[in-house]
């Protein structure tokens, strides 16, 4: 078993190539300038190309002699729920206010664990919302309204 193909390596390298390439393409839209006065595009272009080149090297190495890493399962439920919770928070904290946004975010997040019981989830969410309010709004004097304008306040 001299040559081993490593799928994670190829995937990682692919991500580097993709992101690096995207930045290079984006940088083409900005002025490149001269060495004396480098434009806004020059540095991202240089670094983007470096990232893409390193990514390519990782892909090639991954095809020939990659690191063998167990990729493991993906907790799809947790991924989906946490993404949803965070996006919800960012989207509604201004409109709904601190308390409702925190409560829903906390409740959603607790559901990421597949072993959670509904009652525990509600209790945890309530406790965290209270603790968060105490620490950030009372303690640190954060200026976010507790209840937002969407609720008619």
């Amino acid at each position: 078993m001299e040559r081993r193909r490593s799928l994670p390596d190829v995937l990682a390298g692919g991500i580097f190539v993709l992101i690096g390439g995207a930045f290079v393409v984006g940088a083409l839209g900005y002025e490149l300038g001269t060495p004396l006065r480098m434009g806004p595009g020059a540095f991202p272009m240089l670094v983007g190309a470096t990232v893409a080149a390193l990514g390519l090297a990782i892909v090639l190495k991954g095809l020939v002699a990659g690191e063998v890493i167990p990729f493991g399962p993906i907790p799809w439920r947790a991924v989906a729920v946490i993404v949803l919770a965070l996006v919800f928070f960012g989207f509604t904290v201004r409109g709904l206010g601190f308390v409702p946004a925190s409560a829903v975010t906390a409740l959603l997040t607790t559901l990421a664990s597949s072993r959670v019981r509904p009652l525990t989830a509600v209790a945890v969410a309530a406790g965290l919302t209270a603790a968060g309010t105490l620490i950030f709004v009372v303690g640190l004097q954060l200026r976010i309204p507790l209840l937002g304008p969407w609720l008619g306040f």
């Binding site: 406790g127 620490i135 004097q141």
Partner: peptide, 20 residues
Amino acid sequence: TIAVIGVVSLAAACAGSGGT
């Protein structure tokens, strides 16, 4: 633990609101 966090935050609250 949450109680401890509460105490720390209360200390912060005292410092904060006292000054204000």
